[in-house]
Amino acid sequence: MISGRAHALRITVWLVVASEGLLFAGLFALYAGYRAEYPRGFAEGVGLAVGWLGGTNTLVLLTSSFAMAAAIQAGPRAARRWLVGVLGLGGVFLGLKGAEWAIHIGDGLVPGAHYAGPHTPGTALFVTLYYAMTGLHALHLVAGLAMVAWARRREDPAVTECVGIYWHFVDLVWVVLWPLFYLLS
């Protein structure tokens, strides 16, 4: 028998990351396809973004990844404290994200039949993709928070490490989403 549980957990988390990676890859492919088709509509869509919120959120997540790395380096006791930090920052991210959605919905930027944003061809698709992709990312973040809470209770370095890998993955997805929806105008 090869080193057992820790080994199994590590393979599992990498498989989950690969699987989820392809899930997002499908959406990135859609984004790429439509961006190529409607460059103007997408540029205009990026212009609608609340830039400072996106930037702040990027900082928040990067900091949380740092805290996560620290938690893995630290001993079990200190890890618990670092993980509280991760939980807090994840919460802040979700809060800001929610606020951002509320602003957009207030502006009439809702996907589907009630869309009331700019009518440049492609902008409505951009908005739909914005909600789909940031929404899916937020769901993953929620799942990540649940895992972090679990890792904090378990106090098992192997578990913490694996949850860390997943957390970095979710962070990485955001680092790709950020330019797509906030910067590339």
């Binding site: 009439g108 039949a113 009630h114 869309y115 009331a116 009518h119 440049t120 061809p121 409505a124």
Partner: peptide
């Protein structure tokens, strides 16, 4: 694009 009465396009 044509803006429609129901708010869509």
């Amino acid at each position: 694009p044509v803006p429609l009465a129901d708010g869509s396009t």
